[in-house]
Design a protein around this nucleic acid. Structure first.
Lengths: 127, 127
DNA sequence: CAATTGGTTCAAGAACTATTGAACATTATG
DNA sequence: CATAATGTTCAATAGTTCTTGAACCAATTG
């Protein structure tokens, strides 16, 4: 059996994004923290790579959560050399579920001090 | 052991409502359908009772899902005779997570024809 | 080319979730 | 009071999800 790890993994098309899967993905504290950190990065490059989340969980566990986030359509993975850069699929999500991602991120920001794994992130001011 | 079933069950306070639990609750297709139907009922009484959801699952399974929805703070159960009336905790949710519930309900309405259990609900026009 | 860095894959186990049916509790009705 | 209607509780089960560590792959660096 051949195992290839260098190709860009598969992502669902915009139309294949499903609401229950997205909500389920966001309901895990670690994945919520990943999404939150990616959202915070948007004013800058919008991208983070796996290593940037080392505080959240072990490497293989992170790979597992990244796969979930990718497969439900929340984020996109771009392979570049030995790194994988990830970003939120904001346009696709906005097209499918208007206002949802922002509502979740704002809710997470509001509760940042309560949510495990988010405490260590910079807190974004939300009037 | 005494089993009491006549009292109003416990609900979390507004402040006890937690984002990951709410999202997890909404990620189940049956529970999403329950929330959706409750939302559709809001222009009328806002209330539905257990029997109104008989199409979604068996009775004991519904009781299970109702408990989850109650315990995460999404809905409120009021005991009245042999019935239990349920309504969304819209004000509390809006206070804790502004815009979240509406974003989810609108997303569900948009995908009503795709989501299991929602097809049988009346479709609400969302410009 | 050897070693390092960055990340994936696989297998296994613990923990949790959803579903079902039978027994039960509570209230309303004839 | 007996019966029906409405919904809950409990136990069992099948399936799913998260987590971990060891082995691995690919690209970069010395």
């Amino acid at each position: 059996m051949i195992r290839v790890m260098s190709r860009t993994p598969r992502h669902p098309t915009r139309e294949q994004i499903e609401l229950p899967l997205v909500l389920d993905c966001l309901s895990d504290p670690i994945r919520l923290a990943i999404v939150y950190q990616l959202a915070q990065q948007e004013p800058v490059s919008g991208e983070l790579c796996c290593g940037d989340f080392n505080g959240l969980a072990g490497k293989s566990n992170l790979t597992y959560h990244f796969a979930k986030l990718r497969e439900c359509g929340l984020m996109l993975t771009r392979v570049a050399g030995t790194n994988r850069f990830m970003r939120l699929r904001r346009e696709d999500l906005e097209a499918r579920f208007p206002g949802l991602l922002d509502a979740v991120i704002r809710s997470a920001a509001k509760d940042a001090d309560r949510l495990q794994h988010l405490s260590e992130c910079e807190v974004v001011k939300v009037d």
